Amino acid sequence: MKLAVIGLGMASKPHLAALKLLADQIEVVGLYSRSESRRAAMAAETGWPAFDSLQAVANSDAQVVIVITPPNARAELVQTLGAAGKAILMEKPVERDLARAKALVETCEGFGVPLGIVLQHRYRAGAEALADLMASGRAGKVLMARVSLPWWRDQGYYDTPGRGTLDMDGGGVLITQAIHVLDLMLSLAGPVAEVMALTGKTPLHQMETEDFAAAGLRFENGAVGSVVATTAAYPGGAETLELECTHVALKLEAGALTLHWRNGQTETVGEVTGTGGGGDPMDFPCDWHRDLITDFAARVQAGQAPRVSGRDALRVHRLIDAIERSARTRAIAQVEAEA
């Protein structure tokens, strides 16, 4: 499998580390960044060649292109790569808002190219075990879901040009940090029907968008839930997803799953790892990215749909859109139904 990488900023670190581990399976044919100095430096550091233009990537023999640019830099990339028939694996979020995300997904579908989204929390050992348990039916029905993301970002993080702005990122803690655990929640508990939310900005940050969000949820299956997410919780802690089910109470914390069966038995799966929830956003292993890239490449070769496709990722975009609408209007907001 031949692969190219576009985007060499902070978020590329775990991708590049994972690709080094996959050198016996995947050939990296080149790297590209709009910054000539950055692509030269990364080519020297990694030993992989650098492309001098987007068109050069499109004209290459890469079968897969990983796109790790900010959300506002993707429309042209996807159009060019899609027209060249490249399978695209793209960092979350899909785009800055739901409308743009839909348009990008439809662009890839129009070209008939696979679009996978990097939502790597699904590939943690505890999350995999939780998904298997829910699929088996042993847990029973989901009755309540609770999400907590007490992360920390210092002001230096938001002083990076464009960081936490509507124009570049599309929002704050919801679309940039909480999107991972919200996606995981939806994949396990099913779609949300309506939300009542509050978002805001604490005095701890000078930024355009929210560093705090809280929401009450009502799922389509009748379950209730809550979300509290922030990047103002110093020094930062592990995110948790808790599911109260008919037969078991489940807690997934930083990749470690604890099962409290209602007959009194307790089980644990996985282990606590770095999450990127503290001062260093990249303080986590590259294992999840390695497994995600491996899975995407294998599915492309087999002609199968990505495990987390662009259309799949629209579910979490719909939820974030509803939370933002509810916070703006100070009223219950319906989550847009899937087409």
Rank of each mutant, 00 (worst) to 15 (best):
Leu21Phe: 12
Gly164Cys: 13
Thr268Cys: 05
Ala229Thr: 12
Arg299Val: 01
Leu143His: 01
Ala214Val: 08
Leu166Cys: 09
Val57Asn: 07
Gly85Ile: 05
Val118Asn: 05
Glu242Asn: 11
Leu133His: 01
Met90Gln: 15
Thr176Arg: 01
Ala298Glu: 10
Ile323Pro: 04
Gln334Cys: 07
Thr266Phe: 00
Val113Ser: 11
Glu239Tyr: 01
Leu104Gln: 14
Gly172Lys: 00
Gly170Val: 04
Glu76Ser: 13
Glu210Thr: 05
Phe212Gln: 00
Gly126Phe: 07
Asp52Gly: 15
Ala99Val: 14
Phe219Ala: 04
Gly276His: 08
Ala43Tyr: 02
Arg138Thr: 14
Pro49Lys: 06
Thr294Trp: 00
Leu98Pro: 05
Ala75Gln: 08
Glu244Val: 09
Gly200Ala: 03
Ala41Lys: 08
Thr176Cys: 12
Leu8Ser: 10
Ala131Pro: 01
His15Ile: 14
Leu182Glu: 14
Leu89Arg: 08
Thr69Tyr: 02
Asp183Arg: 00
Trp48Asn: 08
Ala256Thr: 09
Arg299Gln: 06
Thr160Asp: 06
Glu106Ile: 02
Arg318Leu: 09
Ser12Arg: 13
Asn221Glu: 15
Ser148Gly: 12
Leu115Lys: 07
Val29Asp: 11
Ala249Thr: 11
Met1Asn: 05
Phe219Pro: 01
Ala131Gln: 10
Gly7Arg: 09
Gly310Arg: 04
Gly82Met: 05
Val181Thr: 14
Ser53Val: 15
Arg74Trp: 06
Val65Asn: 09
Leu104Phe: 14
Ala145Asn: 09
Asp283His: 15
Tyr158Ile: 00
Ala327Asp: 05
Thr230Met: 04
Arg124Asp: 12
Thr165Gly: 09
Gln55Phe: 06
Val29Glu: 13
Ala238Lys: 04
Leu115Gln: 07
Glu271Val: 06
Gln304Gly: 08
Ala83Lys: 13
Thr273Arg: 12
Ile320Ala: 07
Ala327His: 04
Ala62Gly: 10
Thr165Glu: 11
Thr275Leu: 02
Glu242Gly: 12
Ala135Lys: 03
Leu182Asp: 03
Thr176Tyr: 01
Pro281Glu: 06
Gly190Ile: 02
Ile66His: 07
Leu119Met: 15
Pro203Trp: 08
Leu186Cys: 07
Leu98Gly: 01
Tyr158Gly: 05
Met144Asp: 13
Val192Phe: 03
His121Glu: 05
Leu16Gln: 13
Ile88Leu: 15
Pro203Gly: 04
Gly216Leu: 15
Thr258Asp: 02
Lys102Arg: 15
Glu106Thr: 01
Ala333Val: 07
Ala62Ser: 04
Cys286Arg: 03
Ala87Asp: 10
Leu115Pro: 07
Val300Trp: 13
Lys141Pro: 00
Thr46Gln: 11
Ile66Val: 14
Val28Tyr: 06
Gln79Asp: 09
Thr258Glu: 06
Met42Cys: 11
Arg38Ser: 08
Glu91Phe: 00
Ala44Phe: 12
Gly110Trp: 01
Leu257Met: 09
Thr294Phe: 04
Val142Thr: 12
Glu336Cys: 08
Lys2Thr: 10
Lys2Leu: 00
Asp211Trp: 00
Leu166Trp: 09
Thr231Val: 03
Gly310Leu: 05
Leu81Asp: 15
Arg100Ala: 15
Ala73Gln: 08
Thr46Glu: 11
